[in-house]
Simulated assay, not measured.
Amino acid sequence: MGKDSKSKEGKGKGKQAAGSADDNASKGKGKGGKSSDGLGTCTYVKARHILCEKQGKINEAYKKLQDGWLNNGDKVPPAEFAKVAAEYSECPSGKKGGDLGWFPRGKMAGPFQDVAFSTPIGATSAPFKSTHGYHIILSEGRKN
């Protein structure tokens, strides 16, 4: 994934990813954040994502996640999300289960950052579009 010159924060360098990221504040540790859930107040997010060029393909991946977990109200286990990412993602990170590791606010651009920093820990985002294609994000952690 490449640079995105339309970053809301003017820091369009780095990869853009999609997904959702949760924050350690949801465990009751709102370090430095004003919000008790930590959403939107953390500095770093740990996430996995699935990236597809075509909307139909990302919808297939999402349906697989829904059928396995989301329709039952369950959270998708990271290992299971990784299997779906390896099967569907067109991003090089797909080979490692969509793992993006920890990334700071300002590294990812536009919609990806917005979704990553607003998705609760353990939650999976709905599919969304960015300049790189269609994404689903699994939020794995937050920290300051």
Rank of each mutant, 00 (worst) to 15 (best):
M1G: 01
M1H: 03
M1I: 04
S5L: 10
S5Y: 12
K6L: 13
K6I: 05
K8H: 13
E9N: 13
E9I: 02
K11V: 00
K13T: 01
K13D: 00
G14L: 01
K15P: 00
Q16T: 09
G19N: 03
S20A: 12
A21G: 15
D23W: 08
D23M: 08
N24Q: 12
A25I: 05
A25M: 09
S26D: 14
S26H: 12
K27Y: 15
K27A: 15
G28D: 10
G30T: 08
K34F: 03
D37N: 15
G38R: 05
G38D: 13
L39N: 02
L39V: 10
L39D: 02
G40N: 08
T43F: 06
Y44D: 15
Y44L: 13
K46Q: 11
A47H: 07
R48P: 02
R48K: 15
R48D: 09
H49S: 12
H49Q: 11
L51C: 06
L51S: 04
C52F: 01
K54A: 08
Q55S: 05
G56I: 00
G56V: 00
K57Q: 09
K57R: 14
K57S: 03
I58V: 14
E60H: 08
A61Q: 05
Y62K: 08
K63L: 10
K63N: 11
K63Q: 14
K64C: 09
Q66E: 15
W69N: 10
W69G: 06
G73L: 11
D74A: 15
V76F: 10
P78D: 15
P78A: 15
P78F: 12
A79N: 14
V84C: 03
A86V: 03
E87P: 09
Y88M: 03
Y88F: 15
S89C: 10
S89Q: 07
C91G: 04
C91Q: 07
C91L: 09
P92W: 03
P92G: 10
G94K: 01
G94R: 01
K96H: 13
K96S: 13
G98A: 07
D99M: 08
D99I: 03
L100V: 03
L100R: 07
G101R: 06
R105T: 05
G106H: 08
K107G: 00
M108P: 00
A109N: 02
G110R: 07
P111T: 12
V115E: 07
A116H: 03
F117A: 02
F117Y: 11
T119L: 04
T119S: 05
T119G: 13
P120L: 08
I121Y: 04
A123Y: 14
S125P: 02
S125F: 04
A126F: 11
A126P: 01
P127C: 09
P127S: 10
F128R: 10
F128K: 09
F128E: 05
F128Q: 08
K129E: 12
K129F: 07
T131E: 09
Y134I: 01
H135Q: 06
I136D: 01
I136K: 06
I137Q: 04
R142F: 14
K143E: 12
